[in-house]
């Protein structure tokens, strides 16, 4: 079964790529309309010198945004769980930030931040922090009430209860939020760069796509796209692995199927 789980999608993927290459060749489609996968792969290698720095920029912004989302989302969630008043006052604004489309506020942020990389970081963070915040809040609240009583019975204060009970109980929820936020941070970083629409020495993969479009270098556009998808997949796999590592000994979600 495990073998099939890996082999089945790979076989399907290879078939689809072959079909794509076949159609492109048979129909004689020009590369500036639709390049075949082989050409895309060749471009990826040939343009690696331009693509690699951009990949690093995008990865860096994504990871910084994710780290900020974990720090600020996690801290806010803890703060909310400690004080009902802070939560009542702040949570509506967190929701407003979440529901406002990032494309709509990105231009403002770019004007205010006055620094492309910083504004990209802020945009990516804005998109990424909410799942961590809301999931962690949910987790901090999903504590067995009997365990809470037990902590009270033995005189545990808020801090002890937070560290020894609420945080471990919230961990699976937090990790679920983290997996969503990982993908969102990448999306935020890419979308914000599209809106910024400016190049320079520190431009990411989104800018490479825009630039390739202007120059009709469609194979390079595809190559950049492949890199973005690959980044997203790697982030997802890493976070899934982290989640498994932390939960495998006790949480239902990480148990082997029986």
């Amino acid at each position: 079964m495990t073998g099939a789980k890996v082999i089945a999608p790979i076989v399907l993927g290879v078939l689809m790529l072959a079909l794509w290459e076949g159609i492109v060749r048979a129909a004689g489609i020009e590369p500036y309309i639709l390049p075949g996968p082989i050409l895309v792969a060749k471009t990826l290698v040939a343009d690696w010198g331009t693509l690699e720095p951009s990949l690093l920029v995008t990865v860096r912004i994504t990871l910084e945004a994710l780290a900020a989302a974990v720090a600020i989302g996690g801290l806010l969630a803890i703060l909310f769980s400690l004080s009902r008043w802070i939560e009542l006052s702040l949570f509506p604004y967190a929701i407003i930030l979440q529901v406002t489309p990032i494309v709509a506020i990105a231009p403002l942020i770019i004007v205010w931040a006055n620094n492309v990389e910083l504004s990209l970081l802020i945009c990516a963070w804005l998109v990424a922090f909410f799942p961590i915040l809301s999931n962690t809040i949910l987790g901090l609240r999903s504590v067995d009430p009997n365990l809470l009583d037990l902590f009270r019975l033995y005189g545990a204060g808020r801090w002890r209860t937070l560290v020894d009970l609420r945080l471990p109980a919230a961990l699976p929820y937090f990790l679920g939020g983290l997996r969503i936020s990982g993908g969102l941070a990448l999306i935020g970083a890419v979308v914000a760069e599209f809106v910024a629409g400016t190049g320079g020495n520190a431009s990411g993969l989104a800018w490479r796509i825009l630039e390739s479009g202007y120059q009709l270098k469609i194979p390079r556009m595809f190559a950049a796209l492949v890199l973005i998808s690959a980044t997203g997949i790697v982030i997802y796999l890493l976070l899934t692995w982290l989640s498994h590592l932390l939960l495998r000994r006790w949480h239902e979600s990480a148990l082997p199927e029986s």
Binding site: L147, L150, L153, L165, A169, L171, W250, H251
Partner: peptide, 13 residues
């Protein structure tokens, strides 16, 4: 000492 209706153990410990 208090024993609840459920075991009420911390699953992470």
């Amino acid at each position: 000492g208090f024993v609840f209706q459920e075991p009420t153990l911390m699953p992470w410990a």
